[in-house]
Design a protein around this nucleic acid. Structure first.
Lengths: 229, 229
DNA sequence: CTATGCTAATTTGGATCCAATGTTCCCTCG
DNA sequence: CGAGGGAACATTGGATCCAAATTAGCATAG
């Protein structure tokens, strides 16, 4: 599962233009280049992408179905803003879904995958900037689900990550780096359980990891004030 | 939550043509008119719908993102076939997600909603044909989630129902009507817990209901052989 | 008689053009 | 001076046209 493939939120290597545009826009939204509430004009995208508006329109329909954009007839597309309640429920969904994905994945992970996860965690523990941390953390978690062979489940998980990416960044910026220490410990416990192929234990650690993040997040309502003026 | 609105899998009353076509195709797939493995030709749909191919193309992108169709460049769209494992995992997802949606929903349900649910259950208990039963059962369950105000969660639930609709029909046809008795009892227990606003109990009954259906389903592998020759 | 390769027809993908709707800005009237 | 209306502009939605790719059918050679 390459980073590129993850972004597409589906395993198919469908490289029609609509999908390339969708990937481009998805990346722009995930990177924060396009923030919540911001509008997306079809012609701008078409021009920047060097194509006509048609593939852009199809791409916007895809993103709409993924929940990454909202549409109003004759008004266009914008990135939706989430409320604290929305975000909290999304974390509750993750808390129930991702352990399942993990259990589905663990039997299919190779020893090599596990070594790669270990290397990733070492890079996470190095003192990097926030953006690099976010990217690595995302890569780490999604990689633990690499072995999950059920497309619909992996897709759902990736989409949950996608729709919260912006708020995760805002959260990291205000919550300080004290949490990184906790996160690393939790990752280590998770990795240990995975190396023992102990699904039950791994599920428990993962659910706790997500639940604690949600709790911490709920203490920072200022995350919602900043980027949507 | 009207039946029509449910089908769209999102609360927005976005009645652009692409969405009307998407609704039309979705209904055709759910009703079994278009079965797994079957191909969808753009021009056919456009003609039958009295529009050009463009809205159809956008609609197909939407359905693709919803997992209701697969696409290959220059080959077109088809309804994907699910394996027994896929279906089983989808039921495991439902077993974890729907109880959450129920808990989110229960506090927001009016007394009137509950009475309506009761009437629905009475209609389910009447001895109807399979297709009517499937429609009513779907309406019943989705109605229990009416109070869930988190779009992403309701959307996920509806899509899980959508992607399994065809196999649920096939299952009912082979499993005989003995199960209906069990289903009715489980629905009654669920309704009772909901009327007491006991989320914990309701979650337990719902999870059990879904789990037992999955178990029963796994005893009927012939469901996958029939409709996809 | 079968297999392979070429050609023609079908179907999807993309671009441009036109129509419908929404928005903005300015002018006029109270 | 402010509010309301209208016209010009900007943006999205839909239809038709053309190009690219795949598939199917046929002919020919082994």
């Amino acid at each position: 599962m390459t980073t590129e493939a993850e972004q597409t939120a589906n395993g198919s290597r469908n490289h029609a233009a609509s999908h390339r545009v969708a990937d481009y826009l998805r990346a722009a939204i995930l990177s924060g280049e396009i923030g919540p509430g911001e509008r997306i004009r079809q012609e701008d995208v078409a021009e920047r992408f060097g194509a006509s508006r048609l593939p852009v329109r199809e791409a916007l329909r895809i993103l709409e179905a993924e929940g990454l954009t909202e549409h109003e007839p004759h008004k266009g597309a914008r990135v939706p803003s989430l409320s604290m309640r929305d975000l909290s429920v999304i974390y509750q969904i993750r808390e129930r879904l991702e352990p399942l994905a993990l259990t589905e994945s663990i039997p299919n992970l190779s020893e090599n995958d596990l070594r790669e996860l270990d290397r990733l965690q070492q890079r996470i523990e190095a003192d990097t900037g926030i953006d690099e941390f976010l990217a690595l953390d995302r890569e780490f978690h999604l990689m633990t689900y690499t072995g999950c062979r059920v497309d619909q489940l992996s897709m759902m998980v990736v989409r949950l990550w996608n729709s919260t990416q912006h708020y995760r960044r805002a959260f990291m910026k205000v919550s300080g780096s004290g949490r990184r220490w906790v996160i690393n410990a939790e990752h280590r416990l998770l990795l240990d359980a995975m190396e023992r192929r102990d699904s039950v234990d791994a599920e428990r650690h993962l659910a706790g990891h997500i639940r604690r993040t949600r709790t911490e997040l709920s203490r920072h309502p200022e995350v919602f004030g900043g980027p949507t003026p």
